[in-house]
Amino acid sequence: MKIIVSVKQVPARDSSLRVDAQGKWLEEADLTYEMNEPDAYALEEALQLKEKLGGEVVVLCAGPQRAAQTIREALAKGADRAIHIEWEERAAPDALTTAQLLANAVKPESPDFILTGLQSDDLGYGQTGVVLAELLGFAHATIVMEVEPQGDAVRVKRELEDGWFQHVSLPLPVVLTIQSGIKKLRYATLMGIKKAKTKEVKTIPASQLGIDLNSGLVMERIYLPTRSKKTQIFSGEPKQAAHQLVEKLKFEARVI
């Protein structure tokens, strides 16, 4: 089986997000980066699928040079090789543009499975996997919790709203978008980290994939949302703030 796992590098969860002077993106100097969390779970699922079915896991990543770090991490955890679509131009492409790049890069690979996270922690469009499936003509399922391969098909458990679930069977090739938290993530071993250095990373400049990189949705301005609600904030020393809050809870909310 050939399993592609599509991962994105995003600003780390605890980054301080400062909007740049143009209001178009973030002050990059402030940021550290990490693998998008749902993609880390997609990678784990891909590695476990390979352990079950044999074959190879290929990491696919579109992003600037710094994304090489995230690719190395995936290789260190056990992926076999990688395709890096190198792309410096736009900080915040829309899902269609990204998926077009990914689709053109994986087409020659003819994979059986493509796994990716259900959304990215930065832009959060939640669409890349679905659009990729449509562009490739693959079936897909989203918000996947369990993957049960069945020969040339797969049965997955999908999460629905309000604590409901559903099993769905699909023919291969397939794109699955994976929910966070479904398995325990593995750590890269020292051996894995060493081996990763020798694994193949094929770099494809985005400009060579025949996609119009400057079309699609434009974010005209990004900004901190203005708070519409008057939240009463108690500041100062923890002791003092706690005292003020307890007074409120006692005399206004009347729960103590």
Binding site: D94, L96, Y125, G126, V130, V131, A133, E134, A141, I143
Partner: peptide, 19 residues
């Protein structure tokens, strides 16, 4: 909607403005 709207929009070569 997360499951099918991006697919539908792609048929028209559009990107869904989600959420």
């Amino acid at each position: 909607v997360r499951d099918y709207a991006p697919k539908l929009a792609t048929r028209f070569r559009k990107s869904l403005v989600s959420d």
